Simulated assay, not measured.
Amino acid sequence: MRIERFAPPQAKRLVVKIGSSLLVRPDGTPRREWLATLLDDVVERRAAGQQVVIVSSGAIALGARTLALPGGGRASLDDAQAAAAVGQIMLARLYEELLGERGMRAAQMLLTLDDLEDRRRYLNASATLDRLLALGAVPVLNENDSVATAEIRFGDNDRLAARVAQAAGAGGVVLLSDVDGLYTADPTVDPAATLVETVEELDERIMALGDARSGSGLGTGGMAAKLQAARIAGLAGADLAIVSGKIDHPLRRFAETGRGTVFVAPSAPPRRKAWLAGGLAAKGRIHVDEGAAAALAAGRSLLAAGVFQVEGAFRRGDVVEVVAPAGPIARGLVAYDSGEAARIAGVRNEAQGELLGYAPRSALVHRDHLVML
Rank of each mutant, 00 (worst) to 15 (best):
S244Y: 11
G219S: 10
G258N: 10
A255L: 11
K246T: 14
L240D: 08
H249G: 08
F254E: 07
F254Y: 14
A241F: 06
R259L: 13
R253N: 01
A255N: 11
G219L: 10
K226V: 05
K246I: 00
Q228H: 14
L240V: 03
A229V: 04
I242Q: 13
R253S: 10
T220L: 14
A238V: 01
G237S: 05
G234C: 03
G234D: 04
A225F: 02
I242C: 11
P250S: 04
T220M: 10
I247A: 13
V243W: 07
A224D: 01
G260M: 09
M223Y: 04
R231S: 13
G260E: 00
G260P: 03
A229P: 09
K226I: 13
A238D: 04
I247E: 12
G258S: 13
R259P: 00
G258W: 08
A229F: 09
H249C: 01
G222Y: 09
A238W: 09
I247F: 00
D248F: 02
G234A: 11
A255V: 09
G234Q: 08
T257Y: 11
I247D: 07
A225K: 02
R252E: 12
T261F: 01
S244F: 07
F254M: 01
R253I: 04
T261C: 00
F254Q: 07
